[in-house]
Design a protein around this nucleic acid. Structure first.
Length: 872
RNA sequence: GGGUGAUUAGCUCAGUUGGCUAGAGCACUUCUCUUACAAAGAAGGGGUCACUGGUUCGAGUCCAGUAUCACCCACCA
């Protein structure tokens, strides 16, 4: 066996291992043989406009763990990768790039050219990002990789638009929408963020018609008064009862508008009287509709005052506001200004303040009579058709659906698929044709100059169809894999993506798009801050992989965290898992250095011989069982934790040390074999590498997940462990120098135990495992050697002879403390066992356990007391 | 305004349906380069599980309330 490096060097082996996996073809489920059942995870497509960040890495790790676990369990496993064109975000990114590199705007480039260049940019980024994804080790089938604008994927999405339109679930209408003046597009409700900011509340006096009185309204946006068409008060507000039905003169515009009453007015806020601007406020728009008020658009799509704004036309919103306040002040109509904390709507992508505008847009009716998308989704979540991890996200989702309003899906950006809607210039905008292909002629006037609707789709309209649009693009995938098994994403995508995928899935296929929906938390930096570009606190996954290895990064991303819970990531943490990977490396290095060592998939009973053998096999069995159960239960962090404890504390710290003395290479080979399999989903690179070094021909990636449990008999190996640990402890406590040899006496009445200890190698083990023991004596009865230290281990009374070197005071102190401790515990336990309520209510098993513990502790206590006497 | 999560060792966090004296990593103390590993080994110290009540034989875990922090949602003129 060739000499392996002392330190595992992931940088040198990872790329080669990934290449072997790819070449094997087993990422492609079509090449997997003898499969039983399927595991499918259509991977969330990252935005093809940048690079992978730690959030992607975190999600991919979870997906890959379940994917590899599924594959090792013999399931036809498909992880389907892809990229998203990410409409607005990509347009923003690419416009900036154009400006920075060439100093040109998209307008200068023209729509068609801009689209072409953006497409090329996305493909370039997609290529780069794919190479990053491979670095993380994701076992995805690249032959099926998709892009949201691929013709076949897009076709499915557009077909959905057509059928939804035909079913009356999509309509075009003039409604109030969120407008981003910088992006020049409408936005859906979820694309708008709300930022708390300090603002001002202006109190403006509106003169009552034919009177000297005023009605004072309060507003944060005085400039919108140019478009007021009413003043509203609450019908129960007695202050204004006599004014309802009268009119007021709108200052500056000098138009006459009515004073109306409406339930939705909060009488405790401001003056209780509200100016109504239907064209520029969502609530006002509703009220305007109900009261038949005119909509006067006085702010345009660039946030400039329109012609209807009279003398203020052409001013920006902010400038108009200042001018209006100054003019009102001159007129004596500004009563006062108060400071106010309120939230301002901003664009999710560029943070520009949103202008609510009325505009003609396309909407999805989410609660249609013939097919209520949201009710269907709520039902599926409620009845468990979609299982959600962690479970508490269920309620959040249902609440969100309950409050969901119609969804605006049209955008006025250039980057993205255009609506399959056609207009005839002669017949006008009212008559349109919905068709994926351009119709040859207008059905109304036979005109042939048809123009396509200029709107592009909301990115989420296409990506919400991802699970079936990708599967439908390849042979029988849809039949084989839909509904998919897992969908995993960051909790920030809950509403954007998860919720609406469920809706669309039910509409299109009548089924949920995925059976299990799993949310990861967000990655935070060491101070608990969200990673963000502007803060510059990001951790580049590639840099970390280069520094610590992909396996270490993967482990650091999933350990010490609960599903859906945010977790902090920092280099020191990744380092600890690099150290663990190195531990696994050295464990393997030791095994491989042994003569006649080979990995064994199975072991027969005859080969489990010594007390340590039985013990380690029993521990391994428990580990296999628990790990499997935990993964099935989606608790991967706990699963890895159990595995880690077994690997390090049981196998490395004990079994390997014993193997140096008492060889049983069959057990060694079997445990390492099983261990590599168990670790593979979590740390695929290092396990595959060791697997190969061990001479295995078949890839570990497609080897079977451990399941067979070999029955073992109980061994008393724990007694040996206790003896060793106690001796080491006593040596340290009494400051016995390293080289000094000591002797021990084992007092025990049980013949069986003594036989075990005297069986081949067991004494050797006790002597050589850092105990410095030279001589072991046995006695059936208690001996009373002067100056020795005694400790009870079950039925054994261990006597450690330090030849006069003991620190008597310290020993007395320690024993006294220990006695107190145990007495307290024994008291608590025995009073519980004497409690009739406990005895009659607690399960028999618990009672039995506690009785045993009590007996053991009482025995220990009496031994300690005797020991204390002899010391004194 | 509504909601969710968090509060456990100096720090970062686990702790599944309630069940023996609450765990890990890092940091800390002491010792050791022992031929798999100093990225390691051995032995230790360190916790009123935020607070107050309640349910229970039994509560870190369940219920109610309080406090602090974080995040999300929201048509707060």
């Amino acid at each position: 066996m060739k000499e392996l490096p002392k330190i595992y060097e992931p940088q040198k082996v990872e790329d080669g291992i990934y290449a072997r996996w790819e070449e094997s073809g087993f990422f492609n489920p079509d090449n997997l043989e003898n499969t039983k059942g399927t595991h499918c995870n259509v991977l969330p497509p990252p935005n093809a406009n940048g690079e992978l960040h730690i959030g992607h890495a975190s999600g991919y790790t979870v997906m890959d763990i379940f994917g590899r676990y599924g594959r090792m369990n013999g399931k036809k496993t498909l992880l389907l990768p892809g990229k998203d064109h990410a409409g607005i975000q990509t347009q923003v990114v690419f416009e900036k790039k154009l400006q920075a590199e060439f100093g040109i705007s998209r307008q200068e480039l023209g729509r068609e050219e801009f689209y072409k260049k953006t497409y090329a940019f996305c493909l370039d980024r997609a290529n780069y990002m794919r190479s990053q994804e491979k670095k993380i080790g994701i076992s995805a089938d690249w032959s099926r990789e998709k892009f949201t604008l691929d013709p076949d994927v897009l076709k499915t999405a557009l077909e959905t638009f057509v059928t939804m339109h035909n079913d009356g679930l999509i309509y075009k209408g003039k409604r109030i929408i969120n407008w981003c003046p910088r992006c020049s597009t409408a936005l859906s409700d979820v694309e708008v963020l709300h930022k708390d900011s300090a603002g001002k509340l202006y109190f403006i006096k509106y003169p009552i018609e034919n009177s000297n009185e005023f009605i004072t309204v309060a507003t944060t946006r005085p400039e919108t008064m140019l478009g007021d068409t009413a003043v509203a008060v609450n019908p129960r507000d007695e202050r204004y009862t006599k004014l309802v039905g009268k009119n007021t003169t709108l200052p500056l515009q000098n138009t006459i508008i009515p004073i109306i009453s409406d339930e939705r007015i909060d009488l405790t806020f401001g003056t209780g009287a509200v100016k109504i601007t239907p064209a520029h406020d969502p609530l006002d728009w509703q009220i305007g509709k109900d009261h038949n008020l005119a909509e006067i658009q006085i702010i345009d799509e660039k946030a400039i005052i329109t012609e209807l704004g009279g003398k203020y036309a052409g001013l920006g919103v902010q400038a108009a506001r200042e001018q209006i306040i100054s003019d009102l002040e001159k007129l004596g109509l500004l009563e006062k200004i108060e400071e106010l904390q309120h939230s301002v709507s901003i664009c999710e992508r560029c943070k520009t303040t949103i202008e609510p505008l009325t505009s003609s847009q396309w909407f999805i009716n989410v609660d249609a009579k013939n097919f209520s998308l949201k009710k269907k989704a709520i039902e599926a979540i409620g009845n468990g058709e979609v299982e959600i991890f962690p479970n508490n996200f269920k309620k959040i989702l249902i609440d969100w659906f309950d409050n969901m309003r119609d969804w605006c899906i049209s955008r006025q950006i250039w980057w993205g698929p255009q609506f399959p809607v056609w207009y005839c210039p002669d017949c006008g905008q009212e008559k349109y044709i919905v068709s994926i292909e351009k119709p040859s002629a207008c059905p109304h006037c036979q005109g042939e100059k048809l123009l396509q609707d200029e709107n592009t789709f909301d990115t989420w309209f296409t990506s919400n169809q991802w699970p079936y649009s990708t599967l439908k693009a390849h042979k029988d995938d849809f039949e084989n894999f839909y509904p998919t098994d897992m969908m995993i994403m960051g909790r920030d995508l809950l509403f954007f993506w998860a919720a609406r995928m469920i809706m669309m899935g039910f509409y299109k296929t009548g089924k949920t798009p995925f059976k299990n929906l799993f949310f990861t938390g967000l990655g935070l930096d060491k101070e608990g801050q969200k990673f963000s570009k502007s803060k510059g606190n990001g951790i580049d996954p590639l840099v970390m992989i280069d520094k610590f290895g992909a396996d270490a990064l993967r482990m650091s991303l999933i350990m010490d965290s609960a599903p859906g819970q945010d977790s902090r990531l920092y280099e020191e943490k990744i380092e600890t898992f690099r150290n663990f990977a190195n531990k696994l490396w050295n464990i393997s290095k030791y095994c491989l250095s042994q003569e006649n060592f080979k990995l064994l998939e199975n072991i027969s009973k005859e080969n489990i011989i010594t007390p340590a053998d039985h013990w380690i096999i029993k521990k391994l069995n428990e580990t296999i069982k628990t790990t499997t159960e935990l993964i099935e239960d989606k608790q991967i962090a706990m699963a890895a934790d159990i595995l880690k404890a077994f690997t390090w504390n049981d196998f490395a710290d004990w079994y390997l040390e014993i193997n140096k003395i008492e060889k049983n290479q069959a057990v060694l080979g079997y445990v390492l074999d099983q261990l590599l399999r168990l670790w593979h989903p979590f740390m695929p690179f290092i396990t595959e590498h060791i697997w190969e070094l061990s001479g295995q021909e078949k890839l570990l990636m497609i080897s079977a997940w451990p399941k067979e449990l070999i029955k073992t008999k109980e061994s008393n190996f724990e007694i040996i462990q206790d003896i060793i640990t106690i001796i080491r402890n006593v040596r340290t406590e009494n400051k016995i120098e390293i080289g000094k040899k000591i002797s021990i006496t084992i007092n025990c009445e049980q013949e069986e135990t003594i036989q075990m200890l005297q069986s081949p190698f067991q004494e050797e083990i006790i002597k050589r495992l850092k105990t410095g023991v030279e001589k072991i004596q046995y006695n059936k009865k208690q001996t009373e050697t002067e100056n020795s230290i005694k400790r009870a281990i079950g039925t054994i009374n261990l006597e450690i002879n330090l030849s006069g070197a003991i620190d008597k005071d310290k020993e007395i102190e320690k024993i006294t403390k220990e006695i107190e401790n145990i007495e307290k515990f024994v008291l608590g336990l025995s009073s519980r066992l004497n409690n009739q309520d406990f005895v009659s209510n607690a399960p028999a098993q618990i009672i039995e356990q506690q009785k045993e513990t009590l007996a053991k502790k009482q025995l220990e206590l009496s031994e300690l007391k005797k020991h204390l006497q002899t010391l004194k």
